[in-house]
Structure formats: C-alpha cells, structure tokens
C-alpha cells in the first residue's frame, strides 16, 4: 500500500503548523499521469492560466484528479498569507487524459512545483501541433512536457522539457482542499451595488467609485433585505496594493464573470469564472 511507503522521518511534524514542510520522496511507482492536448487554442489558454497563476505565486501545488486539475497556493502568513485556488476541468483542455492516483481510495496526485518552470516550458508550445504532459521519473520526479512542433523537413520536431516536481505526501493533502467560502458580510451592504477603492499616500488621496454592480448574497434573496434605511453600512477591507495589482494586472484569462467578496476587515476574495475553469484568490487584510 502506498500509504505505508510514504512514511518518512518527519513523523513528528504536526499538520497545523503554518509552514508546510515538503519532503522529497521518490514517486511511488503506482502513480501515473499522462495528458495530451492537440488543439492550439487549448494549449494557449492553458498557458494563459498558468501565466496568471505565475504572476501571484512562485511555488504552487498541482493537484490532479480524474476530472480536474487544480493549482493551489497557500502562502505563509509571514509573506502575506494570500491563497489562490484555480480549478480547471480537464476535458475542456485535454483530448487524452489518464491518471492513476496514489491509491484506489485516494485517486489523486498532489505535486509541488515552481510555476515559472512550467510556464516557460509551455511557452515553447505557442505554435505546437500537440502537447503531452506526463509524470515521469528521471533523476527526480518530473512533469515531462513534450511539445510537438512543426518542422520543415521532417514530420515534426519534438522538444522535451523535464520540469522537476516534488510529490506531496498524502499526509499533507488537507492543506490543499478547496477553500470554503467564509460568511460574507454582504447582508445589508449597499443594495445599489456600489464599491469604492481607496488609495492614500502622503500627497494624494484617490478614490474610485463603482456603481451598478450586481450584488448577490449566497443563499439569501437580496430583495428580502430591503429596509427603508438610507444609511447603509459599508464593508471595508484593507489589503496590500502590490498583491492586488499583481493579481489584477496578471489577468490573462478574460473571465466571463468576476465576483468580489469582502469579509469586513478580514479579507477580499476574488472569484473569476469562465467556461471550464475558475480561479479564486484570497487576499487577507493588513493591519491599519
């Protein structure tokens, strides 16, 4: 059983430590992954998603399940504590997709990698005929990206990139679960759908007012909230502007819908929705 084989020397580490400690293990030979993309649009969109993630994260976890791929970031609190969850439906991107997880009950694979390495490998596929991604074992476990490029002389040219990865042991999988939406304080906020973005420095104050935004409250009907009160409480959150701008500027995905949820004085949550992928980004508040 693989679970038995993943026992390692760091048994003493408890899972509620905020740092996650990675132990590099050799990939249990049972784990397999092979995916192939043949449509250039899919390859390019996949590259854009990875590029978007690369703007806000350096090292991410890649979680593979039979139906989805997830890119997950859980930043340490000392670095700002942002987190990001990106979910991609595999059949939208891949023509062929085969995987065997760690075990029958846990049919998933969790890998950790430097996202920039993956991005650069994908970039060489911008005009590829096909793209294969496989889990392999070279000197270390790797995600092997095999790009089939057009060639003048022969049928095609193959470029292979071995991107080193680390297998995340089953023990730590809880850190990479889909985040629950926290209770959002949108209850009586601004029925009219207004949002204000404020930036303040010594010399300048800038406020931007957004109106006519769609408001939605999870599970609650907005209408039932209508009070005659004119004075509606506002929900506020202060976040690191660099991280916010990294996220906004790094967007390449062109989502169909963007939802921004604010938890008063705790965090901002962005939810980008597209056909077959979603990206969530959590920015915690900073102290005033």
């Amino acid at each position: 059983m693989n679970l038995g084989r993943t026992v390692n020397v760091s048994e003493n580490i408890s899972c509620d430590q905020q740092e996650f400690v990675l132990v590099v293990l050799s990939a249990p030979s049972k784990m397999k992954f092979r995916g192939k993309m043949v449509e250039i649009i899919c390859i390019q969109q996949f590259t854009k998603v990875v590029a978007t993630v690369a703007k806000v994260a350096k090292i991410v976890a890649l979680r593979l399940s039979p139906s989805h791929l997830f890119l997950v970031l859980n930043e340490q609190v000392v670095n700002g504590g942002t987190s990001m969850w990106c979910s991609l439906s595999q059949d939208h991107f891949f023509n062929e997709y085969n995987m065997e997880g760690v075990s029958a009950e846990n049919n998933e694979i969790y890998l950790e990698l430097t996202i920039e390495n993956l991005l650069r490998a994908l970039k060489s596929a911008h005009s590829a005929k096909s793209l294969k991604i496989k889990l392999t074992k070279k000197r270390v476990p790797c995600l092997t990206i095999e790009v089939e490029l057009p060639s003048l002389v022969s049928a095609s040219r193959i470029v292979i990139h071995d991107v080193p990865v680390a297998v995340i042991p089953r023990r730590l999988w809880d850190e990479f679960q889909e985040p629950e939406m926290p209770d959002f304080d949108t209850v009586s906020a601004s029925r009219e759908g207004e949002m204000t973005l404020t930036v303040e420095t010594d010399l300048v104050t800038v406020k931007t007012y957004f109106k006519d935004l769609d408001m939605s409250v999870e599970g609650k009907n907005v209408q039932s909230q209508s009070n005659s009160s004119d004075c509606l409480p506002w929900v506020e959150a202060r976040v690191d502007i660099r991280k916010l701008s990294q996220f906004l500027v790094g967007q390449q995905v062109n989502p169909l819908r963007v939802i921004c949820n604010i938890v008063h004085n705790r965090m901002i949550h962005f939810f980008l929705l597209h056909d077959d992928l979603s990206l969530q980004y959590f920015l915690p508040c900073i102290a005033s």
Partner: peptide, 16 residues
C-alpha cells in the same frame, strides 16, 4: 540541486 533545474532536450534530423 537537480530538483530545481528544468532539463530541455530537442532533436533534429540529419536531413535538416
């Protein structure tokens, strides 16, 4: 550290 370096390989045919 081999866990950090991406290894890239490309093949060409003598006919090229």
């Amino acid at each position: 550290d081999p866990t950090k370096v991406v290894h890239t390989a490309l093949s060409l045919e003598p006919e090229e």
